[in-house]
Amino acid sequence: GSVVKEKKEKALIEVRPYVEYYNELKALVSKISSSVNDLEEAIVVLREEEKKASEPFKTDIRILLDFLES
């Protein structure tokens, strides 16, 4: 629970300088966080969101995924 939350919060802070739609990304992460149990599940849902998103938000999600998977 809290470790996953920390990882996601740290990821958002780390990617902030590189993303165009930070507030939207943060809102998406919050929405996903409330419906998943762990980081792996969150990553799966983020990948689905990435497929549906259009640029440049798609790239923002990709940047976040790269950080979460590192």
Rank of each mutant, 00 (worst) to 15 (best):
V4N: 12
K58A: 13
G1R: 03
P17S: 08
V3Q: 10
E69C: 09
D60P: 04
Y21H: 10
A27P: 00
L64K: 00
N37Q: 11
E50F: 10
G1C: 14
L39Y: 12
E24R: 04
E55N: 06
Y21S: 06
K31C: 05
K52Q: 10
S54P: 09
G1Q: 12
Y18D: 15
K51R: 12
R62I: 04
A27Q: 10
K7M: 15
V44W: 09
N37H: 11
V19A: 01
S35P: 04
S54M: 09
L65M: 06
K7W: 15
E49R: 02
V36I: 07
E55K: 04
I61M: 03
V44D: 09
S33K: 03
V44F: 07
I63K: 04
K5F: 05
A27F: 06
D60F: 14
P17T: 02
D66N: 09
S30L: 10
E49C: 07
S34P: 05
I32A: 04
Y18W: 05
I43N: 02
D60L: 14
F57D: 01
E6S: 11
A11T: 04
Y21Q: 09
S2T: 09
N23M: 13
R16Q: 15
P17D: 15
A42H: 05
G1V: 13
S30N: 14
E20D: 04
K10D: 07
D66R: 08
S70H: 12
E9K: 04
L39V: 06
E69W: 07
S70D: 11
K52P: 00
A42D: 04
D66F: 12
V44R: 09
P56G: 10
V4F: 05
L65F: 01
D60H: 05
V36Q: 04
A27D: 14
I13R: 13
V4M: 11
K8L: 15
I13H: 08
E41D: 07
L12P: 02
E14T: 07
S34T: 11
E69F: 07
K8S: 15
E40M: 09
E9Y: 05
E55Q: 08
N37L: 06
L46W: 01
I13V: 08
E14H: 11
E48G: 09
E50T: 06
L28Y: 01
I43Y: 06
K51W: 10
L64W: 02
K51A: 13
K31A: 13
S54R: 07
S2L: 07
E20R: 06
Y22E: 03
K7F: 15
A11D: 04
E9F: 07
L12T: 01
P17L: 05
Y22A: 01
A53L: 04
E50C: 13
V45R: 14
N23Y: 13
S54W: 09
K8C: 15
I61D: 00
D60Q: 02
L68Q: 00
L68R: 00
K51T: 09
P17E: 14
K31H: 09
L28Q: 01
K7V: 15
F57M: 03
I63W: 04
E49W: 04
V3P: 11
V45T: 07
L64T: 02
K58L: 03
A11P: 02
L12Y: 02
S30H: 13
L68I: 08
P56W: 06
E6H: 03
V3L: 10
E6I: 09
V29Y: 14
V29N: 01
L28N: 01
L46A: 01
E55S: 03
D38A: 07
I13W: 02
L28T: 02
K10Y: 05
V44M: 11
L28H: 01
L12M: 05
S30Q: 13
I43W: 06
L39E: 12
E9L: 12
L65W: 01
K31S: 13
R16F: 15
F57G: 01
K7S: 08
V19Q: 03
E48T: 07
T59Q: 12
E20G: 03
S70Y: 09
R16D: 14
S30A: 11
L28G: 01
E50P: 00
K52S: 08
E41A: 09
F67A: 13
E24Y: 03
E6G: 12
L12C: 08
S70G: 13
K58D: 02
N23P: 04
K10S: 07
I61H: 00
D38I: 09
S35K: 10
F57W: 07
E50R: 08
A11Q: 03
K31E: 13
L25D: 00
D38R: 07
P17K: 10
S30V: 12
E6L: 01
L12G: 02
V3I: 12
I32K: 02
K58W: 02
N23C: 13
D66M: 10
S70V: 10
R16K: 15
E49Q: 05
R47K: 11
Y18K: 15
L46E: 00
E24A: 05
L64V: 03
I43K: 07
E20P: 01
R47V: 06
V29H: 02
K7C: 15
I32V: 12
V19C: 12
Y21D: 14
V4R: 04
I61C: 01
D38G: 09
S34R: 06
Y21P: 01
K8P: 14
L39C: 15
P17Q: 13
S33V: 14
R16M: 15
R62C: 10
V36W: 06
A53E: 07
I43S: 03
A53W: 07
T59F: 05
I63E: 01
K58N: 04
D38V: 07
K7I: 15
V19E: 10
I61G: 00
L25W: 01
L25M: 01
I13D: 14
L39P: 08
L68H: 01
I32P: 02
V36P: 03
T59M: 04
S33Y: 11
E40Y: 10
V45W: 08
R47E: 08
L25C: 02
K31Q: 13
V15E: 04
L12H: 02
Y18H: 15
P56M: 04
E14Y: 03
S34C: 06
I63V: 07
K5Q: 14
A42G: 08
N37I: 07
I63T: 08
L12E: 01
T59K: 14
S70M: 12
V45L: 14
S70R: 09
V15H: 01
R47H: 13
E40H: 09
Y22D: 02
L25T: 00
L46F: 04
L28K: 01
K8D: 07
E69D: 12
K26G: 04
S70T: 11
V44N: 11
L12K: 01
S34L: 12
T59L: 05
I43V: 09
Y22V: 02
A11W: 12
I61S: 00
Y21W: 05
Y18S: 14
E9Q: 07
R62H: 14
E9P: 03
S34H: 08
R47F: 05
L39H: 05
I13N: 13
E14W: 01
N37V: 08
V3H: 12
E24G: 02
E49L: 04
E50N: 05
S34Q: 14
I43A: 04
S30P: 01
A53H: 13
D60R: 01
R47Q: 09
F57N: 01
K52E: 07
V36N: 06
E49D: 02
V45D: 06
V15Y: 02
I61T: 00
I61P: 00
L25K: 00
E24N: 03
D60K: 01
V3T: 14
K26S: 14
K31P: 02
E41F: 05
E14P: 02
K52M: 12
K58T: 03
V19S: 02
